[in-house]
Design a protein around this nucleic acid. Sequence first.
DNA 1: TGTACATCAGTGAACGCGCGTTCACTGATGTAC
DNA 2: TGTACATCAGTGAACGCGCGTTCACTGATGTAC
Lengths: 242, 242
Amino acid sequence: VTYDTLQCVDGHSRKRARSSSPRPARSRAPRTSETDGGSRAERKRRTREALIAAAFRMLERHSFDRLSLREVAREAGVVPTAFYRHFENMDALGLVLVDESFRTLRDLLRDARTGALEPERIIRSSVQILVRHTHEHRQQFRFIARERYSGVTTLRYAIRSEIRLFASELATDLARFPGLNRWTTEDLNMMAGLIVNTMVSTVEGILDAPLDSPVAEDEIIRIAEKQLILVALGAAQWRVID
Amino acid sequence: VTYDTLQCVDGHSRKRARSSSPRPARSRAPRTSETDGGSRAERKRRTREALIAAAFRMLERHSFDRLSLREVAREAGVVPTAFYRHFENMDALGLVLVDESFRTLRDLLRDARTGALEPERIIRSSVQILVRHTHEHRQQFRFIARERYSGVTTLRYAIRSEIRLFASELATDLARFPGLNRWTTEDLNMMAGLIVNTMVSTVEGILDAPLDSPVAEDEIIRIAEKQLILVALGAAQWRVID
DNA sequence: TGTACATCAGTGAACGCGCGTTCACTGATGTAC
DNA sequence: TGTACATCAGTGAACGCGCGTTCACTGATGTAC
């Protein structure tokens, strides 16, 4: 459905256009009481979620910078102006996406905390958890990886500060390990940063690997494990120069 | 200067528009024999470089996905249609930018090769070289960091494969170190990947740090050095499990 | 319980704008004789 | 060396299109009595 038509700024042709072309039926499914129950507030919430989901879906193919308000609204099955009932503008939507994405990232950390304790096994299981979450929340992970260094300043800063927060949570977890409990905060954050970087690049590797190629994914996993083991080995020696 | 005006598709008003408004003077400096010497081929080369430079300049503020052909042409002081004399489309320009950026990145590696030999000193000097190159080629480095995971598939793949190449060159260099010369190729690439990730995130930190705050930059440098030392320490232990 | 009014999520037309691309053109540079 | 013609980098007008945002609106849901 096209809402705009280019016309002469001229009363006659405008009137003609109005009367000559009867409106075509809406192409999306009409709302029925069957598909569309709930209170007004509930339905508003659903539209909001539809906009968020639409944005995430489109972000698999484009950067946020490229998304247009109209595209998102269209994908959500809603008229462009309805967007404004939920978000002030696209930036506001972007910040909500950052929030949602990092909420799922924190779940990952919580999952990982319940893992095994020996250094070698904890790395294996952590990478496993990372891979599982990556597949379960492809859209959120892709969004973070893509926009971390993006051209949209607002998002870049929001993600940067969330990643810093995430890294310092990870640092707190690291501090519980026998060899690391005497480290300075800066050093723990330094190591956490190294781990987070490795995680992010692993995630991107998995997301961009051919979906049907478990071989490529296995290689990415093997390399990630080795990288983390290398870091752990380095950490074990760190006291030497501390 | 506006090239387009919205008009009725109507002979009369079009003719009117043509005759009524005399063309305003070009806003950019007119070409003179003084500023504009050289053969035809030479001047074409200069326009091409102007387009590339314009794109790099604009990429400091936006992602490539967001750049428009017209903006780039405008910034280069050239009419939009002139763009096509040099590049088939924006994607083609993007690939040239990738090329140029990685050429300067290779210079960095060459510079680093002439550094000191003891592990600790080589890290210090490498980071120093990295920081210097980052400042000298801000635009290229920012472009790589930003578009590495970008929404533009063509660029992402081009950059990814260049980074892989870069990492394997680095791996070759690593293989020369006493402790590492018996490592498998995969393990060398694994370690190189870890180092490259650290480099990229260091570069982004430096680029986004307040320009007038040497304190923030010093912290970034200190952390990068520590991360590389950690990796080196891990590498020294790697044989244990090899 | 029923009625009258308020709320407000979503609609659709309209606006002015910048976009990518086409086209016929201009006029300085380059080349052949 | 001079002349006549070819080349081609850059120009400017035009096209149809999608954009963000405004506005007055509609009609189902919610509320007060």
